[in-house]
């Protein structure tokens, strides 16, 4: 049975290494600061005991005050999972670092979040629209798209 790791426990471990990376954490998820996403992800992937080698899913959600990207990570070796969240408060030109260098599976999923929610990922090798055509105006999965 895959155990879902408690957010507080993992954020304590992250906090020891990167003191101000965690914004808040609760039982279910860990919310990170946008700039520290790449180094925390590297830490989560390589630390023995955590070893999150499989990125299950990336989703973009539009809460009206901020845009959020949710990462579901799984570790095949230890059979546990974790939920990471990152938030962007800028609605005009939101930007986050890309995790493609750590997990190749993020390639198409980040392009989809860019296409439908509008968040640009810096460091992505080929960031362009994937599901809609080039020249489509707007980002459909935002709440203010009608």
């Amino acid at each position: 049975m895959t155990t879902a790791l408690s957010g507080q426990e993992v954020s304590r471990q992250i906090g020891e290494r990167f003191p101000d990376a965690v914004l808040q954490s609760d039982e279910a998820a860990v919310v990170l600061r946008g700039e520290s996403l790449l180094e925390v992800a590297q830490f989560l992937k390589t630390t023995p005991g955590l070893e999150f080698d499989y990125l299950a899913s990336i989703s973009g959600v539009d809460y009206l005050d901020y845009l959020e990207v949710v990462y579901h990570l799984t570790s095949m070796k230890n059979n546990h999972s974790l939920v990471l969240k990152v938030r962007c408060w800028d609605r005009d030109k939101p930007s986050l670092p890309s995790v493609v260098s750590l997990w190749r599976g993020a390639d198409f999923q980040e392009r989809e979040v860019y296409d439908l929610v509008g968040i640009a990922f810096s460091g992505h090798p080929n960031l362009k629209r994937i599901l809609l055509w080039e020249g489509f105006e707007g980002h459909p999965l935002r709440r203010d798209y009608l």
Partner: peptide, 15 residues
Amino acid sequence: PYRLHIRAPTFINLT
């Protein structure tokens, strides 16, 4: 639902 996201296996296998 406020948001429904589908993790599609074949989309990711195409990588």
